[in-house]
Design a protein around this nucleic acid. Structure first.
Lengths: 181, 181
DNA sequence: ACCTGAACACCGTTCAAGT
DNA sequence: ACCTGAACACCGTTCAAGT
C-alpha cells in the first residue's frame, strides 16, 4: 500500500537524480541536501545513485550546470547596454527562482558550456562598448561577482530588512555608469 | 608519555576554544572544522566546549567577530579617498591572512560591534565625499559585497589562474572612480 | 564546577552480494 | 545490468553520570 517512492517513474537516470536534487535543495535548503535524503526522495538506496553521479561533488557540479542552462541570453540585435541590463535582470531572476542553488555559483568554479556562453555574452557586449579585451574580461568578472555577491547576500540574510530589488538596481546602475565612463 | 593534548594551557575558555577553531579552520579548511575535530585539537571531549559556546552556530559567529576585530581602521586625518583605499587594502589583507574564515563574511550576517565599526567608517568616508545618507549606505554595501565577493571567489577557485592582486586593484579603482563621478 | 561516556540521529562512500 | 545491505569512519547534540 505504502512505499517510500516519491518519484518512481521508470529507471534512474542522471537527469532524474539532478532534478530531484534541485527539488530537495530548494525545498529543504542546500545544506540539507545529502546523498541519503536524495535517495529517500527518489525512493532508492543511496548507492543506486552512484551509477549516475561519481560522488557528491559531481552531483553539485551537475546542479550548477543545470542552473546556468536555464539562463536566457539577450537578443543579439539589442544595443550593448540593453543586453547587459537584460543579463543582470535574468541573473537576478534566476537567483530568485533558485536561491539555494544559486549559492553554488560562488562556491565552485562554473566550467560547463553554459557558463562559458554566459561569460562570452557579457564580454561581447563590453567589447561593443569600446572596451579592450583584457579590460572587458576583468569587467565581466567584476559584474558577475557583484551580481552573484548580491544574490548570495540576500539568500544568506546579510541584507536582512532591506529592499533587495532597490539594492540590486542601484548596484547595476552604478556599475553600468562606471562602464560607460 | 603521550596524550592527545595539543593545547593544554590551563582551563578551557571561550577565547581558547575560538583560537583553536580559527587554527583548525585555516590549517585544515573551514569545512573540516567540526566540534569533534576541534575537541581533539583542544585535547578535550566535544561536550566540554558546550560550556563556552552554545552550539556550532555560536562558534562560527564568534569566529566572525574575532576576524573583524582584527581589521584596522584608517587614520581619521586622512582624506576620504585614502581612507576607502586603506580599508579595501586591509580587507584584502585580512582575506589573505584568513582565507578560510573570510568566507564566513558572505555566509552569515556580521552583527558584532566590530562589524558596525567597519561599516560606519566606510559610510563616514562616503558622506565626506558629498554622498547622501541613503546612497552612502547603499554604496557601502556595494563596496563590501565586491570586496568580499572577490576574496571569496579567490578562495573558492572561481578566479583560478588569474592574477588576483590585479583583479582586486582594478575592481577597487573602477568602483572608486564610480563613487567620484 | 567542570568534564566525560554513552547514546541518538545523522553524514559520504566502499565493497561484496543479490536479482 | 541494476540495485541493495552491511559496514566504516565520520557528524552535532543531549543526557545522565563522574570527580
Amino acid at each position: 500500500m505504502f512505499t517510500a517512492y516519491t518519484d518512481a517513474a521508470g529507471p534512474l537516470t542522471r537527469e532524474r537524480v539532478l532534478a530531484a536534487a534541485g527539488r530537495v535543495a530548494e525545498r529543504d535548503g542546500l545544506d540539507r541536501l545529502s546523498m541519503r535524503t536524495l535517495a529517500r526522495e527518489l525512493g532508492v538506496s543511496p548507492m543506486a545513485m552512484y551509477r549516475h553521479v561519481k560522488n557528491k561533488d559531481d552531483l553539485l557540479d551537475g546542479l550548477l550546470d543545470r542552473l546556468l542552462a536555464e539562463l536566457p541570453l539577450p537578443p543579439e540585435s539589442d544595443p550593448w547596454q540593453a543586453r547587459l541590463r537584460f543579463m543582470a535582470a535574468e541573473l537576478r531572476a534566476l537567483a530568485r527562482r533558485h536561491p539555494q542553488l544559486f549559492v553554488l555559483l560562488l562556491q565552485r568554479p562554473a566550467v560547463g558550456s553554459d557558463a562559458v556562453r554566459t561569460r562570452d555574452a557579457v564580454e561581447h557586449a563590453l567589447r561593443e562598448a569600446g572596451i579592450g579585451p583584457e579590460e572587458a574580461a576583468r569587467l565581466q568578472r567584476l559584474l558577475s561577482t557583484v551580481v552573484i555577491g548580491f544574490a548570495l547576500s540576500e539568500v544568506s540574510g546579510r541584507f536582512a530588512g532591506l529592499d533587495s530589488d532597490r539594492e540590486f538596481d542601484a548596484a547595476v546602475d552604478l556599475l553600468l555608469d562606471a562602464v560607460v565612463a
